[in-house]
Simulated assay, not measured.
Amino acid sequence: MRAWLARRFDAAYERVLRHEISGAPSHVAVIQDGNRRYARKHGQDASDGHEAGAETTERVLQWCADIGVDELTLYAFSTENFDRPPEERDRLFDLLEEKLYAFADRDRIHDEGVRIRAIGETHRLPPRVRDAIDYAERRTRDYDQFTLNVAVAYGGRAELLGAARDVARAVDTGDLDPSDVDVDAVDARLHDDPVRDVDLIIRTGGDERTSNFLPWHANGNEAAVYFCTPYWPEFSRIDFLRAVRTYESREESWRRARAERALALLSALGGVELREARSVLDRFRDHAPDGVDVDDDTPTATSD
């Protein structure tokens, strides 16, 4: 009886959360933490935890499709993971190889136009994993409805360092003028194909840190971050919807802050600056503080 009530409650709460969400982040990045702790909790081997986590990954793909996410990046294997015990590391490689082939052959991937690509220092991976990556990328390279990035042998600091070295080499050889070093120049050297700015980072397992994950695309975009306690195999649709709600709250707060700054400019400036401030405010008209009329030349507080 208690389990039945819990299921009914979860179903009702999920409907409430879905009703509260009006949009979706374009790019969600996930740090899938807690597979090993989940296995220990259930008296299993680490490999069993990774297997259970892979099942959650498949569900999250569907949840993203359901609400209209365009890009999903999964932190599957960090550069630090090379330091794990050889038997666990080999099992992770087995799982990566197996899932990459399986995803590339899945009908839903092709029906929904999902492009799979790997990001990271893939040259450090065993040949069999590199072959699986190549297979998945070749089979899906022409799709553009949804992008699934698999971060393998990935480290954000190493990624930025590599881009900085490429920029320095281009300047040294005369292929790039120092005055032309800008965001686009760095972006072009991070990945072969563009990665969208990250809107939302989700980390499971209870740790509240982003672990060097996509620093250029997340920090530069001031991405929302959602930390939750369930281990990755336990991550539920309710947890996912809560994360998206956090993103929406963050976006609302950001827009209101922009509107309030524009109002301050309207009060303090005139001339060209005034017109520029009003153009900012017009874009965030729906988020102006209550009681403010943005149609006049200056903000006017209305009486109660």
Rank of each mutant, 00 (worst) to 15 (best):
A259Q: 04
A11S: 13
R141V: 08
L17C: 09
I116Q: 02
L100I: 05
D66W: 01
I133H: 06
D199Y: 10
H19W: 13
G291Q: 08
E51V: 11
W216Y: 14
E88C: 10
D134K: 09
V181G: 05
A168K: 02
A76I: 05
Q145E: 14
R209T: 13
A163W: 06
N221R: 11
Y75R: 06
E273S: 12
R245Q: 13
R196H: 15
Y135N: 10
R59P: 00
L160P: 00
A185Q: 12
R242Q: 12
L5S: 08
A6S: 12
G156K: 09
D177V: 01
V244F: 06
T73E: 03
A151G: 10
D177I: 02
L160H: 01
G49H: 10
D83V: 00
R255V: 04
W232A: 00
P25G: 08
V114M: 12
D239S: 13
A257I: 10
T122Y: 01
A223F: 03
T298K: 10
T57N: 09
I238S: 14
H287I: 02
S211G: 12
N212C: 07
W254C: 05
T246S: 15
S236A: 14
D197K: 14
L125T: 02
I201P: 00
K41R: 13
T140W: 06
P86I: 04
G270N: 13
D197W: 13
D282T: 11
G205F: 01
D66L: 06
D197P: 15
Y38L: 07
I238L: 13
H50R: 02
E20P: 00
S78T: 11
I133L: 13
P127F: 02
Q44D: 04
E58C: 04
D66G: 06
E208V: 10
L269H: 12
R130P: 01
D45E: 14
R283I: 02
E251H: 05
A170P: 02
V244C: 10
L266P: 00
R261A: 08
Y231D: 05
D33E: 11
D45S: 14
D142A: 13
F240K: 07
A223Y: 02
L148Y: 08
T57L: 09
A164H: 08
R124H: 14
R203W: 05
T173Y: 01
D304P: 15
E97F: 02
V186K: 05
A288F: 00
D90Y: 06
G113F: 11
D207H: 09
A118I: 07
R169P: 00
D296F: 11
Q62R: 15
D286E: 11
